[in-house]
Design a protein around this nucleic acid. Structure first.
Length: 423
RNA sequence: GGAGACGUCGCAUAGUCCGGUCUAGUGCGCCACCCUGCUAAGGUGGUAACGGAGCAAUCCGUUCGAGGGUUCAAAUCCCUCCGUCUCCGCCA
């Protein structure tokens, strides 16, 4: 939820943000309108309610006829109060509806849509397979050769976009996620294994039930939602709490399964395990002071890159355009690894600065020096996912179908240096 | 799944039976000041969040797990839900 005070004091800032995202700027005026209605409506209710309360005390003291007379009056007032309260509640709901439909105010992201990102830098060396004298295999062919990935049985058991990781495939995922966890722990993150089913208010608080609600699995019978990322649970972790950030940002590394319906992506990335309904992820999550958020964003990006370097992958960093931001994000950087068989980059990490947007909905605050409270900023970033296996297999493959193991992962694979195909 | 107990302003607890005197008391903790040569102890005052009005002092409203109901009036009575604990059953 955006800051109502910002909306009142600087509506133009919010309008400009809406335009940059390609969203409707008229929502800003609708919100201002609803806010004014809510305030006048509450003023009316509160005034009469105050009268009702003071009369209630007179009633308690009065006796006999006097009491009867007072009761007649208070009865009438009670009905009016009820009506005014209903009005005020309605106005409140209407304001919230509009506020919830406005995405976070963009901070520094380039304007435009999905294609309008800016490439910040390219790191690592892209291999020239032609020069090496062989045509690269795609990750599924490699994975099947290694007996590491089984999509056929995945489909048999669970349907399309499901898979089994077997043998070195399973070990590689564990290695990757453990390496990510260790990196995070070494940097001072608190490791967390999170719930993957959350209540509606938690899902809503993180902003995933807006435009992309179709992406989310819902268990109707229990009114629970399957998370698409542990960000959801980690954002809810400190909901309705007042945090002490004197010691710097509070950082958590969440380890969880992630579930996505992939509703809008029929036909896209259907081969292999690039786009699947279920995967595992290590996610960084940080609670920090709003004025420290931009710097913290860079730190998260730095740790993502450290992890990519540990996996020895060539990648580029992009500054996502406003129109391609999630509703909670004010700015987002993605790291994309090179995918040799498709001649394109593939998103492996994504770090978002949600400023105070999530914290406001979830009631995460800190105490200021003046003794008041204010919302903190929240940020998240990927440190490793199942999808990384795709980039690792393709980029580190050798002519015979074996796969070189990056040095940073070897300690997690019992020292294994090469993954050998199964004959 | 069955039975019972419980959920109060950081923590602990009073208040609930019998509705109004609750503007929610008390202790601990915390903050400020005072006192004591230092330490310990002591004294005085303050100490929930949110929304609104005001330059401000301050004032008004909402919140006693959540929601609904009864009533002129609900922490207090009724209903539903959630959570915690104890016991039983069932399953891993």
């Amino acid at each position: 939820m955006i800051d109502l005070r910002l909306l009142r004091d600087n509506p133009d800032v919010v309008r400009a943000s809406q335009v940059a995202r390609g969203d409707d700027p008229a929502l800003v005026d609708a919100a201002l309108d609803a806010d004014a209605r809510r305030r006048s409506s509450f003023a009316e209710f509160e005034q009469l309610r105050a009268e009702q309360k003071s009369m209630g005390k007179e009633v308690a003291r009065a006796q006999g006829d006097e009491k009867q007379a007072l009761l007649a009056r208070t009865k009438a007032i009670a009905e009016q109060v009820k009506a005014l309260q209903a009005d005020a509640d309605t106005a409140d709901v209407q304001l919230k509806e509009v506020l919830y439909s406005i995405a976070n105010v963009v901070e520094g992201a380039p304007p435009g849509g999905e294609e309008d990102f800016i490439v910040l830098r390219e790191e690592g060396t892209i291999r020239d397979f032609a020069a090496e004298g062989f045509t690269p295999r795609d990750h599924l062919e490699l994975g099947e050769g290694l007996a590491a990935i089984d999509t056929q049985r995945g489909a048999k058991v669970s349907g399309a976009r499901f898979y089994f990781l077997t043998g070195v495939g399973a070990r590689l995922e564990l290695a990757l996620l453990n390496a990510a966890m260790d990196l995070a722990i070494a940097e001072g993150f608190t490791p967390v294994i999170t719930p993957t089913l959350v209540k509606q208010e938690t899902m809503q608080g993180t902003g995933f039930l807006g435009k992309h609600a179709d992406e989310v699995y819902r268990l109707e019978k229990d009114d629970l939602y399957l998370v698409g990322t542990s960000e959801v649970a980690l954002a809810g972790f400190h909901s309705d709490e007042i945090l002490d950030l004197d010691g710097g940002p509070m950082r958590y590394a969440g380890w969880s399964a992630c579930y996505r319906r992939e509703a809008g992506s029929a036909g896209r990335d259907t081969r292999g395990i690039i786009r699947v309904h279920q995967f595992h992820k290590v996610e960084m999550f940080s609670y920090c002071r709003p004025e420290d958020a931009a710097a913290e964003h860079q730190r998260l990006l730095g740790w993502e890159e450290a992890m990519l370097q540990k996996a020895e992958l060539p990648y580029r960093v992009i500054d996502t355009a406003a129109g391609d931001l999630g509703s909670s994000a004010a700015r987002k950087f993605d790291c994309e690894a090179w995918l040799p068989t498709q001649d394109r980059y593939l998103e492996l990490t994504s770090t978002s600065n949600c400023t105070t947007f999530q914290a406001r909905r979830l009631g995460v605050r800190e105490r200021t020096e003046e003794g008041t409270t204010r919302n903190v900023a929240t940020l998240n970033g990927t440190l490793g996912t199942t999808r990384w296996i795709v980039a690792i297999l393709e980029n580190h493959q050798q002519a015979d179908g074996s796969v070189y193991v990056p040095e940073g992962l070897r300690p997690y694979l019992g020292g294994l240096e090469v993954l050998e195909p199964v004959k």
